[in-house]
Write a protein that binds this DNA or RNA. Structure first.
Lengths: 256, 256
DNA sequence: TCGAGTCGTTGCGAAGAGTGCAACGACCAT
DNA sequence: ATGGTCGTTGCACTCTTCGCAACGACTCGA
C-alpha cells in the first residue's frame, strides 16, 4: 500500500539470510543505490539494522528486543477470553483457562455454565494437578525428565475412585495426552463431573495455556461431552493462532 | 532520513508495549488516522503487525521469525576474525576462537603467532576440554546441574603436573571462571605454554564462543601474558557487541 | 607512482507518492 | 431513533522521495 515502506520492509527478510552490502541490497530491491542507502539509513536509526565493521548491513539488536518485549506483554487471557465466551455460547457449559506457574497450575479465566448445576472453581485457585485435564495438558508438554521429577514430588489425593493413583499412572497419562493432543478428566476430581480440554500453543509450538469444558453427569453424559472434543480443539487452535500472531484477520469484511 | 519509513517504524516499539487501535497509533505518531491506517496496512502485509479480532493491532509472528532466522545465520567466525587479527597484530601471539558443539569444544579459528616458536593446534580439532581456557569459559556458562554432569563424565588426562586432576577441581575452576569472567591455562596442557581467554556473549548474555591468547614460556612469562588480560577482555567485549548487533558503527567517518 | 576500477555518499530537479481532509457506513449505547 | 465512536475511502494538493550524475575514498595491479 505504501511503496517506500514496502521497499524498506523488504530489506529485512533479505538481511535475515545474512549480511549484505549496499550494492546487493539495491540490486535485490531493484532500486537505485542512493534509494537503498536512504532506506537502510532509516532502518539503521531505528536499530533494526546494524552495520558491521566491513560496512555490510545485518539485522540489528532492536529487532530481538522488540520481539522479546512483545511476547512479555502478551496476555493469553486477553486474547482467549472472546473465544471462551463464544465456546460457552455454543455448548452452554463451564469453560476454563489455566496456566502453569511455579510448579502449580492456576485457573486464570472462567466462563460460567448456563445450566443451574455448576462446577465449583475459582479464578486464581490452584487446580487439582494430578487429575484436571488442563493440568495434564500443561505438564505433558514439559521435557521427560522434568515430568518425572514433578510426578515423583506430587501428592496423589484420592478424590474419587478414578483419581490418578500414583506417579507411574500419572506419567502414563501425560504420555498419552502428549501424543493425542487433548486430555480428559472423567470423574477424577468429583465423581459426577467430566472435562475435556485442549492445549494453547505459542509461536514455537510449546504449550502456553490450556482450556477445558466441564459439565456434571446430570446435564450431559461423558459420551455427550466427548462429542464436543472437535469443537474444543478447534477453539484452542484458533486461540493459538491468534496468540502467536499467525494466520489471517479472523473475519474480513468481504465483497464490494 | 525517510519520513514515511520513519513513521512506519515508530509504530513497532509502540505496539511492542501492547495492542493498540488505529486512533491510539495515529495519536502517538501525531498523524491523521488515514495515514496511520496506510502504514499499518503495509506493516500488516509484511506480517510485522498482526490484527486481532477486536480490530486492534499487535506485533506479528513474522517479527519473531525474522529474529530467529537472523541469529541462525549469524556466524561468530566471520564477525570475530578481523578482531582476532587486530589482537594478534597488537600482541604478536597466537589467538584462538572456539565454540562448544555436542559435548566437545572445537577451535574454529586461529591467527598464528608472529614468533617462531608456536603452539600446536588445528582448526576443527577438539580442545583439551579439562584444561584449556576456552573450554573453561564455554562450560562455565552452563547451568550448574549440567556442569556437574559433564564434569563427572569427563576423563582427566594428566598432561602435566598442573592439569586439572578431577571433577571436583574442575567444577571449582569453572565456578571461579564464571565469577571472574575470564580464564587461564597456566601450563595445564603443555608445561611451557600459557593462555588467557575471555568469553564472547550473545544478545541474551549467554556465552556463544570463547577466545584466548597463547604463548610459550620462552617468549613471555606467565605474568607478562596475564598483563594482556585487559586487552583480551576488551577485544572479546567488542566482538560481543558486534555479534549481538549492539553498539555504534565501529568507526564513523567524522567531521564535515 | 599512477590510473582504472569499485563502493559508499551527496545535491539536485522532476514527478510521483504520501498526506490530510471530509464524508460515509458500521456499530454500540443511550 | 439518535448521538457518539471507530475504521475506511476518494480526492486534490503538496511535500517527499526517486534516479541521475558526479565526487571522494579506497584497492588492486601495472
Amino acid at each position: 500500500m505504501s511503496q517506500t515502506v514496502d521497499r524498506a520492509l523488504s530489506i529485512l527478510p533479505l538481511l535475515a539470510q545474512g549480511p549484505a552490502d549496499l550494492g546487493q541490497v539495491a540490486a535485490r530491491l531493484d532500486v537505485h543505490k542512493s534509494t537503498a542507502l536512504r532506506l537502510l539509513r532509516t532502518l539503521h536509526e531505528h536499530g533494526l539494522v546494524h552495520r558491521q565493521q566491513d560496512q555490510r548491513y545485518r539485522l540489528g539488536a532492536r529487532l530481538f528486543a522488540l520481539a522479546q518485549e512483545a511476547v512479555e506483554n502478551l496476555d493469553v487471557r486477553d486474547i482467549a477470553h472472546p473465544y471462551l465466551k463464544e465456546l460457552n455460547a455454543e455448548c452452554g457449559h463451564t469453560v476454563h483457562l489455566a496456566v502453569r506457574e511455579e510448579g502449580e497450575v492456576l485457573y486464570i479465566d472462567k466462563v460460567e455454565s448456563r445450566y443451574p448445576v455448576r462446577m465449583y472453581s475459582r479464578i486464581g485457585k490452584p487446580v487439582a494437578i494430578t487429575v484436571a485435564a488442563v493440568a495434564k495438558l500443561l505438564l505433558a508438554d514439559l521435557p521427560e525428565q522434568e515430568r518425572r521429577e514433578i510426578a515423583e514430588q506430587l501428592d496423589y489425593p484420592q478424590y474419587t475412585a478414578r483419581s490418578t493413583p500414583n506417579p507411574a499412572a500419572f506419567l502414563r497419562e501425560l504420555a498419552l495426552v502428549r501424543e493425542q493432543g487433548w486430555a480428559t478428566d472423567l470423574g477424577g476430581h468429583e465423581e459426577s463431573i467430566n472435562c475435556v480440554g485442549a492445549p494453547i500453543r505459542g509461536t514455537d509450538g510449546s504449550v502456553v495455556a490450556a482450556m477445558s469444558v466441564s459439565a456434571p453427569n446430570v446435564v450431559v453424559t461423558a459420551e455427550e461431552l466427548l462429542a464436543l472434543l472437535p469443537l474444543v480443539r478447534r477453539t484452542a487452535e484458533a486461540i493459538s493462532r491468534e496468540y502467536s500472531g499467525t494466520g489471517e484477520p479472523p473475519a474480513a469484511t468481504a465483497a464490494p
